[in-house]
Design a protein around this nucleic acid. Structure first.
Length: 365
DNA sequence: AACTCGGGGGA
DNA sequence: TCCCCAGAGTT
């Protein structure tokens, strides 16, 4: 697949000049701000990112400020945005940048790629948007746009599909007009988000429809080709509410790696197949916190969907029967007053439990 | 190459 | 309900 003619770039860039939405990170001349935006935008829609971006940048206006902050504060500002390894990697990369490069980002995609949390896409995006280099940046939007432009029938998630589209994107970035790298990269992504949408693409409004082979063949709805996805499993999880004499609740911090790493939650565990929830809860508290508990009434059930599975979180009022908490399967634990939980980074499901407790505190106490 | 890792927007 | 989103890291 060869790069399109000059007229393609002219049409695309003219459309972008007229239609580019005024996003905060596009006003930014600071590469750190571009970096932050690109990381937040990984697998996350623009509308979702906007408030997080503003809050985060206010709290940490520079690489130095981010590097000096405790990870807990960074995670708190990331709470609800998901994929928390992004926050941990961003923090780690900022600390390395300050320690080894004076807090200044490198300009080449190759050097950027070495930063924690910066992969091929993000490196190309920063290099082109912040530094004006002719680097390719292939995200989900661009993948879709290119597959349609070239009526590409190989599944885009396959190795062959990714290789071919990245190679095409590199050629296209090289062939883009000098000095237009930043506009070109963002124009392609905007086109995918606003015109070349996953379902019902608006071909009649597309500035480059004349160059689109899928449009010509009428196959745009069938591009890109995706592989079928397996069904998502459903798990039952039980959580314990334990109070100390002052009414504070026992909470625990998840290990820094893995799902929801570093976030706080009510002590909980997944039930094995055919395992009663009460038994699973007793086992979880014993294995993760070295506690023996009595399990009382179930207070509520919270449904929560992750990307690859769903859980039903059953929350029980419990009593401490023996032992002193030890963080065996957790990174830490603490007795937390309900109001003080606002200061912690907590996952969505457990936030809903807290909201329930606040609403019903009078009845429950 | 396959698997893991959140949460929400929009149809 | 389902698909998808400015993907990266690990195995």
């Amino acid at each position: 697949m060869e790069a399109p003619p000059e007229a393609f770039y002219e049409a695309l860039l003219a459309w972008y000049a007229r239609n580019a939405p005024d996003l905060p990170w596009r006003r930014a001349r600071d590469p750190y701000q571009v970096w932050l935006a690109e990381v937040m935008l990984q697998q996350t829609q623009v509308a979702t990112v906007l408030p997080y971006y503003e809050r985060f940048l206010s709290a940490f206006p520079t690489v130095q400020a981010l590097a000096e902050a405790p990870l807990e504060r960074v995670l708190k500002l990331w709470e609800g945005l998901g994929y928390y390894s992004r926050a941990r990697n961003l923090h780690r990369a900022a600390q390395r940048l300050v320690a080894e490069h004076g807090g200044v980002l490198p300009q080449s995609a190759e050097a950027l790629r070495k930063l924690a949390g910066v992969g091929r896409y993000t490196a190309g995006a920063i290099a082109s948007i912040a530094f004006g280099q002719p680097a390719a940046a292939v995200d989900g939007n661009v993948m879709r746009v290119l597959a349609r432009l070239y009526d590409y029938a190989v599944p885009v998630q396959s190795g062959e599909g990714r290789r071919a589209l990245w190679q095409l994107a590199e050629r296209m970035a090289q062939a883009a007009p000098r000095g237009a790298a930043a506009a070109y990269t963002q124009a392609l992504m905007d086109l995918g988000r606003e015109i070349c949408t996953p379902r019902a693409p608006r071909c009649e409004a597309c500035p480059v429809s004349a160059f689109c082979r899928a449009r010509a063949a009428g196959t745009q709805a069938a591009r890109p080709v995706k592989q079928p996805k397996p069904p998502t499993p459903h798990y039952a999880v039980a959580a314990a509410l334990l109070r100390d004499d002052s009414g504070a609740l026992l909470m625990a911090r998840r290990p820094l790696e893995g799902l929801l790493g570093g976030l706080w939650e009510f002590p909980q565990g997944r039930a094995r197949e055919d395992e009663p929830l009460e038994a699973a809860l007793k086992r979880a508290l014993r294995e993760k916190l070295a506690l023996e508990i009595g399990v009382g009434a179930q207070l509520l059930k919270v449904q929560h969907a992750f990307t690859h599975f769903k859980i039903a979180l059953h929350v029980y009022a419990c009593q401490l029967q023996g032992g002193e908490p030890r963080a065996l399967g957790y990174a830490d634990w603490a007795w937390i007053a309900l109001e003080a939980s606002d200061q912690l980074a907590i996952s969505r499901a457990d936030r809903r439990v807290i909201a329930f407790l606040k609403e019903n505190s009078a009845r429950l106490l």
